[in-house]
């Protein structure tokens, strides 16, 4: 026999199923072994009433409560979220009672089953003994009684004698070693792997870009084309003759001062500050031949600039001013002749 040590002691006794006395548990109880110290391990559920201790886990009540929770969850999912999340449906209903009923039923079932299963697992985990105590021969049809006793050596002998009298094939003793619940380390790694996988998944989602790449040309998309030469669209902006109102003249004057006065001078006679540095003196806008030019000709000169014998004398203002602005400058230049 193994030396009897001081503290906790587990006694394992193997029995032939046929030789297993019904009354063993009662005798053990009379011998002073506590109720919950006795465990009977078997390869299949033994329905003898004696062995059963009142189940402490009310699985039925858990299932019912979980079912009610599920209904609440279902109603919240089907109706609540739809109302919280205002999707435009042009006045059409979002919540339909029978639909909420169906989804609530499904959620009830889901939550009920999952909670029952979880409760059972927790219960199993709390019931589980140290795996090593389980003698592999149980599966071949033996029954093992496990007694966890205190160090009281006297009771030990009494129990040992009782077991041998009951016909135990083999009795072993074991000290319960403090083994950490196995697998904690590995579970950590498992959750890490799951974390990495999900981040990968939502990363992928950002990649596909359906219909962002439109084959049609968006505004200002290269290659940029120009409008046809000589054609006039129905609401053409550059051809419209601005109303010769006062407001157009002032605008024309302001733009003239900004863009034209440095060559043509403030009064348009061609005595601007830059004239000294120019090879070709700028035209005197008050001269009768300039005033005689048509608005179109003036507009064309302002837009595309002027070149005499191949040397461009006046730069184009097409880039600086819009069509309307150039029209207003031309209107202002035309008005210079009237006093």
């Amino acid at each position: 026999m193994a030396p009897i040590t001081v503290n906790e002691m587990t006694v394992l006794a193997l029995f032939e199923p046929s030789g297993y006395p019904e009354s063993l548990v009662d005798e053990l109880r009379n011998a002073g072994v506590r109720e919950d110290a006795v465990e009977v391990l078997s390869p299949l559920p033994l329905h003898e009433a004696a062995l059963l201790r009142p189940a402490r886990v009310p699985l039925h009540r858990i299932a019912i409560i979980a079912g009610l929770l599920g209904i609440g969850l279902g109603v919240m999912v089907a109706a609540g979220t739809a109302l919280l999340y205002p999707i435009v449906t042009g006045g059409k209903p979002i919540v339909a009672p029978p639909v909420v009923g169906i989804i609530a039923f499904e959620m009830m079932m889901l939550v009920a089953i999952v909670t029952t299963f979880a409760a059972m697992l927790i219960r199993l985990r709390s019931e589980s003994r140290n795996a090593t105590e389980r003698d592999p021969r149980i599966d071949d049809g033996l029954i093992e009684v496990v007694l966890s006793l205190t160090h009281d050596s006297a009771r030990l002998e009494a129990v040992q004698a009782l077991l041998q009298r009951a016909g135990a094939l083999e009795i072993r003793y074991r000290h319960p070693t403090l083994s950490a619940p196995h697998g904690a380390e590995r579970e950590g790694q498992a959750t890490a792997a799951v974390l990495v996988a999900t981040s990968l998944l939502c990363g992928v989602e950002a990649c596909s870009r359906d219909m962002q790449e439109q084959p049609s040309y968006q505004p200002q998309e290269a290659p940029r084309l120009h409008s046809p030469v000589g054609s006039v669209s129905r609401d053409n902006r550059s051809v419209l003759k601005p109303l010769s109102t006062q407001q157009v003249f002032d605008e024309g004057a302001r733009l003239f001062r900004i863009n034209c006065s440095h060559c043509h001078g403030r009064d348009g006679t061609g005595n601007g500050p830059v004239v000294a540095y120019l090879k070709e003196p700028p035209a005197d806008l008050l001269a009768p031949d300039v005033q005689a030019l048509s608005e179109e000709a003036l507009y064309d000169t302002v837009t595309n600039g002027l070149a005499i014998e191949g040397r461009d004398v006046m730069p184009p203002f097409k880039g600086e001013m819009s069509a309307e602005q150039r029209r207003s400058v031309v209107a202002y230049v035309k008005s210079l002749s009237q006093p």
Partner: peptide, 30 residues
């Protein structure tokens, strides 16, 4: 899941089975 075969474990397992069986038949029909 740390199953050792104690009578309580058997009892819990059979209760769970007895609860889930009708539920799952109802789920199947739904």
């Amino acid at each position: 899941f740390g199953w050792t075969g104690t009578q309580n474990q058997w009892h819990v397992l059979e209760t769970a089975l007895r609860i889930i069986t009708p539920l799952i038949v109802m789920v199947m029909v739904s």
